[in-house]
Amino acid sequence: MKKYLSLKSMIKIGLLVVALIFPLFVSGNYVISILVNCLFFAAMAECWNIIGGYGGQVSWCHASFVAIGAYSNFILSNDFGITPFLSLPLGIGISFMLAAVIGHATFRLHGPYFSVATIACGEAVRVLIQYFDKITKGAAGIYVSYKGADFWALTFENDIPFYYLGIIVLLLTVLVTYLFTKSKTGYYLSAIKGDETAAESLGIEVFKVKLTAFQLSAMLSSVVGCFYASFLTYIAPTSTASFDLSMKIGVVAIVGGVASLWGPVVGGFIVILLIEATSVFFGAAGGSQMIYGLLLIVVIIFKPEGIIALFRKNNAEDSKNMELDKKEEA
């Protein structure tokens, strides 16, 4: 057992080292920019995973939280010259409150209510961003004002700094998710996912636990969104707050593997690279976007645990025992 674990962590450390030195061997920005996209999508999917995977509550408005982080970054840095790092609390605060509003209305109910409410909310946020065009520049979107390479403004000459930033953000989301799943609330959440009624009869405050998980997921998403926006250098309601982005985040997480720590990371790289490859053949619109829908259908029907399940066939017994442990502990 011990030996096996250490082998696993050695593989992980090896992959991280490869990832860290990878940019030294690549010339040109294109490959790096695709990898940065993979990293950020993996990070967003990891956030989605907290409520969508571990909680079993399918959210389709994570793009709204990403947009909140992105817009608070750009508005504060363009209009007031404040560094993106200081705009993080603003984005986190707004996401926290928005998640509270959605959660309060829907987490008392069982069924598709949460999903419908999140779709509606995502649409409302996009429309509001377009409506308040004095602050957000409306549908035209915002460009970041480039004043030379500057770490505190998060503007760089090429995408390599964003590559490292992406790795840091991804590891941060993985760490937060890990800590969350090992916390009391995390165990409660997995118990609720297993059987809501049983969990409630054991004295778990179902409503509160779901709400906390959703708020954590939302706040973390806005942090990712803040850095992702700096990488994009241009944000618009259709690119950051649309249903399409929410959909992609969800698909990345589900294809990778819901309710697993590294599933969304695997999903981020596989899905985004696959889309990049197909868009070469089919064009960026329509054709390659079909793949998202197709992947989702195929994975849910044939491999609901996600791609990551292919890597850990032999310790299925382990995870079964772990789940039992979790239930007992809850």
């Binding site: 399918v58 959909m247 969800g250 976007q289 998202y292 829908g293 989702l296 259908i297």
Partner: peptide, 10 residues
């Protein structure tokens, strides 16, 4: 929910 949304997008 997931499958029908995937189908919708497809």
């Amino acid at each position: 929910i997931l499958v029908t949304l995937g189908l919708s997008y497809f």
